[in-house]
């Protein structure tokens, strides 16, 4: 089996597994919507305040939703032993992991795009900021999965890794949060967002190339 075939097989398998458990797929989405709903209740429903906070609120909620869904990335594979099979495969582990991360993103990251308009409506985000919000979500949610994978790989062997996972991963998410929310914020006031989008793209490429290596090293450490 060639490397490409192996990666496709992993993506297919993970997607199949995810569709067999559709209820779990909805959880990060529901969480995303719920967290956004909490903000107007907590800070009051003044339209101008909510509108000013909207980019930040949406992005912090997306970050938390991504964090919540991360644990599923390697957990079940670790428990049923298929992660060990992955490690034994003759193909480079870091590339195989990329397949796993991609399917995880398809299932947890991409759906955030579908509910984003709803949340924009809740918070009164202007329509002209919508394309930018989508663009930042498309560029930045894969990064959340890629960076998060390092943290999951480091903590998958621990019985209660959840708290430590957030402590490890959230500081690394901060640059993503800064540029993504500032892009949406600028789009709200009609300013150009090219710089932020370019930086996000650069960071995505960097993450795509660099993060699978420590993830693979950490998985090897966690499994033995």
């Amino acid at each position: 089996m060639s490397l490409t075939q192996a990666v496709w097989a992993i993506i297919r398998r993970d997607l199949l597994l995810a569709f067999r458990r559709r209820a779990e797929m909805a959880n990060p989405l529901l969480f995303f919507v719920m967290v956004v709903t909490l903000f107007p209740l907590a800070v009051g429903a003044q339209a101008n305040l909510l509108q000013a906070m909207a980019p930040g609120v949406i992005w912090v909620s997306a970050l938390l939703a991504a964090l919540l869904s991360l644990d599923g990335l390697f957990r079940s594979d670790f428990e049923d032993g298929s992660l060990e099979q992955l490690l034994l495969s003759p193909h480079p582990l870091s590339v195989l992991i990329l397949g796993k991360i991609f399917s995880h993103w398809l299932v947890t990251g991409l759906p955030l795009l579908l509910v984003a308009p709803l949340l924009a409506l809740f918070l009164g985000l202007p329509e002209k900021a919508m394309p930018t919000l989508w663009l930042t979500l498309i560029l930045a949610t894969p990064m959340l999965s890629l960076i998060g994978a390092i943290g999951v790989a480091l903590t998958v062997g621990l019985r209660r890794g959840g708290m430590i996972l957030s402590l490890l991963v959230l500081p690394l998410y901060i640059p993503v949060l800064i540029f993504a929310s500032s892009a949406v914020d600028r789009a709200t006031s009609g300013l150009p967002v090219t710089a932020q989008i370019n930086i996000l793209m650069a960071m995505l490429l960097l993450a795509l190339v660099l993060t699978p290596l420590p993830t693979a090293a950490a998985l090897k450490m966690s499994v033995n």
Binding site: I150, L154, T155, G157, L158, G161, I164, L168, L172, P214, A217, A218, M221, S222, N224
Partner: peptide
Amino acid sequence: LYGAIEDKRDAARAVSILALV
């Protein structure tokens, strides 16, 4: 992270990866 992993050899490797990241 170092405190959470019981095998200290493994913990040191995990922490090395984390420091590099």
